[in-house]
């Protein structure tokens, strides 16, 4: 098990990892006067499951948006496999192997489940408008993609739904579909934004199992989650964000005892923080 990878890692914010796949330095994102993300240094261990937790508004989703190219950084750098990623558009980030899912599931409603899956495959010849006209140019690739998609659908227990519209799936099934579709893009790192939100308990177990399997297949998983049971169950390492910064890192056991984390969740610093944000009703 790769949990060993964290044996020598200090449980403190910004601690270096044994095998870093993604690293972030001085990452800042401001919206007007509000600093949504301000991360000094963070390293993500390869082939492990890292949970990103924190109270609402901690900047977790913004952090995801930044590293996947869906938002532009105000300042700072980040590297994926040693290659700088800042300023790289989202589609190129995905092609490099850093693929994300969304908090609000983005199943493509009016496409069938199998079409959703096939869309995920990268490097499709038939996605060029001229080559698209000549089926023999992409027909065999399409069949390979479809076979791979069917495999994944079976694994995610969606095969019976393959010809239904994605919009006809339940909320939990859409989460499954989105995760399966992301896998079609052959990611090395998969960023799951609240994969369990709105999923019923029975399906949660199966989703958790799928996430663990991803690691067994060599993927690196980074996920945002609010449910602490889920975090405890699957994460090898936990990163805690509050007010845009990383306030703690460690195994879930060490996180639970961390005073900064307890403060962030229970709100000791509550009054002080409110004072720093000017809420002027005249301006709105």
């Amino acid at each position: 098990m790769t949990t060993d990878a964290f044996d020598q890692v200090e449980p403190r914010p910004g601690s270096p990892k044994r095998d870093t796949i993604l690293s972030v330095d001085g990452l800042v994102r401001r919206f007007g006067g509000i600093t949504a993300v301000d991360v000094d240094h963070l390293e993500i261990q390869a082939n492990a499951i890292t949970g990103l937790i924190g109270p609402n508004g901690a900047g977790k989703t913004t952090f995801f948006n930044l590293i996947t190219g869906f938002d532009e950084v105000t300042a700072g750098t980040f590297q994926f496999k040693g290659e700088p990623l800042e300023g790289v558009p989202a589609y190129k980030v995905a092609r490099k192997g850093l693929v994300r899912t969304f908090q609000l599931t983005k199943a493509l409603s009016k496409l069938s489940v199998i079409e959703n899956m096939k869309l995920g495959a990268v490097g499709q010849t038939g996605e060029n408008p001229f080559k698209a006209l000549v089926r023999p140019l992409w027909g065999s690739q399409e069949r390979e993609i479809e076979a791979r998609a069917d495999e994944l659908l079976k694994r995610f227990k969606l095969y019976e739904k393959r010809d239904d519209y994605a919009g006809e799936l339940s909320g939990g099934q859409r989460k499954l579909l989105e995760m399966a579709r992301a896998l079609m893009a052959d990611p090395e790192v998969i960023c799951l934004d609240e994969p369990m939100a709105g999923v019923n308990p029975a399906l949660t177990q199966s989703l958790l199992q799928h996430v663990k399997e991803l690691k067994d297949e060599g993927l690196t998983v980074v996920f945002v989650e609010h449910d602490m049971d889920v975090v405890r169950d699957i994460s090898d390492w936990v990163v805690v964000m509050a007010e845009g910064s990383i306030i703690a890192e460690g195994t879930h056991a060490s996180i639970g005892k961390n005073q900064a984390v307890i403060d962030a969740y229970l709100g000791t610093a509550h009054e002080i923080d409110l004072g720093t944000i000017e809420l002027d009703p005249e301006k709105h």
Binding site: T68, Y91, F102, K106, L119, Q124, T125, A132, L133
Partner: peptide, 28 residues
């Protein structure tokens, strides 16, 4: 010919949700 091809699939997906298509590595 175009809409039944993978190219058409990308277009239809963009119609549904651009960001999802971006996240799958397509230059929307």
């Amino acid at each position: 010919l175009l809409v039944r091809s993978p190219w058409g699939r990308v277009l239809k997906a963009i119609r549904e949700d651009e960001d999802a298509v971006r996240s799958l590595g397509k230059n929307v």
